[in-house]
Simulated assay, not measured.
Amino acid sequence: MSALKAGDQFPSDVKFDWAPIADEDPAACGIPQPYNASEEFKGKKVVLVSVPGAFTPGCHANHVPPYIKNFDKLQQKGVDLVIVIASNDAFVMSTAAHEDQQTAADGWGKVSGAAKGSKVLFMSDTKTKFSEKIGWMAGMGDRNARWAMVIDDGKVTYAEKEGSIGGVTVSGADAVLSKL
């Protein structure tokens, strides 16, 4: 499969991994389980953001915080969820599970400021399967490239990959907001 672009259908077999927190105790992580993105994205407008790694300086300080800070603006433009993916395992990206899937992240997400009830979710693109499938790898071993995609009820309406590993221009919250 080649890189996705505006107008393409989002693939029907995309799964990420997440490790739900069994209760309010952040040390009580559940077993990592699949998150069927193709199914969960149906009927929703989702911003899918890929970063090279959790807690890395560019991702942690520059790329992810504007998505959390500006979620209200994204929501005003019809966005239901922002999903942040990295090749880190599900425990690092762990997300607290609640019945309604309106979750707060623990691991990297909690440290990044995603509050309880947040619709900014942190998941693992385990072994970079999805990013590799679309050819958007960082070129630094098994790391995702930095990119952003908007999926509206199964159709890609925006998909851009950064030209450099450290850049946050076409994949940043401001760029995505300007295209919604």
Rank of each mutant, 00 (worst) to 15 (best):
G78F: 08
V84N: 11
L180F: 01
V168Q: 01
Q33H: 01
M137G: 07
G163Y: 02
I151D: 05
V176N: 02
A105E: 04
W136A: 07
F122V: 07
T56S: 14
N62C: 01
P65S: 08
P11Y: 02
S178R: 02
L121I: 15
S164Y: 00
E99Q: 13
S38W: 02
S164G: 11
A3S: 14
S50G: 13
F91S: 06
W108V: 06
E160M: 04
G7P: 10
D8Q: 11
W108Q: 01
T103S: 13
M123K: 03
I83E: 05
E132T: 14
S118N: 09
A54S: 13
K110W: 02
M149K: 09
F71L: 10
W136P: 00
G107F: 01
A37C: 06
P26V: 10
P20G: 12
I21H: 04
V46W: 06
K77F: 08
K119R: 15
F10D: 02
D174E: 15
A175F: 05
F91N: 10
K119A: 11
A115M: 06
S164L: 10
G43H: 09
G163M: 03
Q101T: 11
P34F: 06
V46H: 03
Q75H: 15
V64T: 12
M149V: 09
Y158G: 03
T157P: 01
V64R: 03
V79G: 04
A28Y: 00
V156Y: 06
S50T: 09
K119Q: 15
K179E: 13
K45L: 10
V111A: 15
M137Y: 00
D125K: 10
I68W: 04
A115S: 13
L81W: 14
F122K: 09
S118V: 05
E40K: 14
K69H: 11
K44G: 07
D8W: 09
F122Y: 13
K73I: 00
S164E: 14
E39I: 04
V84G: 05
A105L: 05
D174N: 13
G135Y: 07
L48D: 05
Q75D: 11
D142C: 01
K161I: 12
Q33K: 15
V170R: 10
G154A: 05
A22W: 00
W18Y: 15
S164M: 12
G166Q: 08
L74N: 04
T56G: 08
V79P: 03
V92T: 15
K5N: 08
G43M: 07
S171G: 06
I85N: 02
D153G: 09
D106M: 11
K116W: 00
D13R: 03
C59R: 08
T103L: 12
G30Y: 08
C29G: 14
I68C: 03
A104N: 10
K44A: 12
A104P: 01
V176M: 09
F130S: 04
S118T: 06
T157W: 01
K69R: 14
T95V: 15
G109K: 06
D25E: 12
M149G: 07
S38C: 10
T157H: 06
Y158N: 07
G117W: 05
K5A: 14
E39Q: 15
M140E: 12
I85S: 05
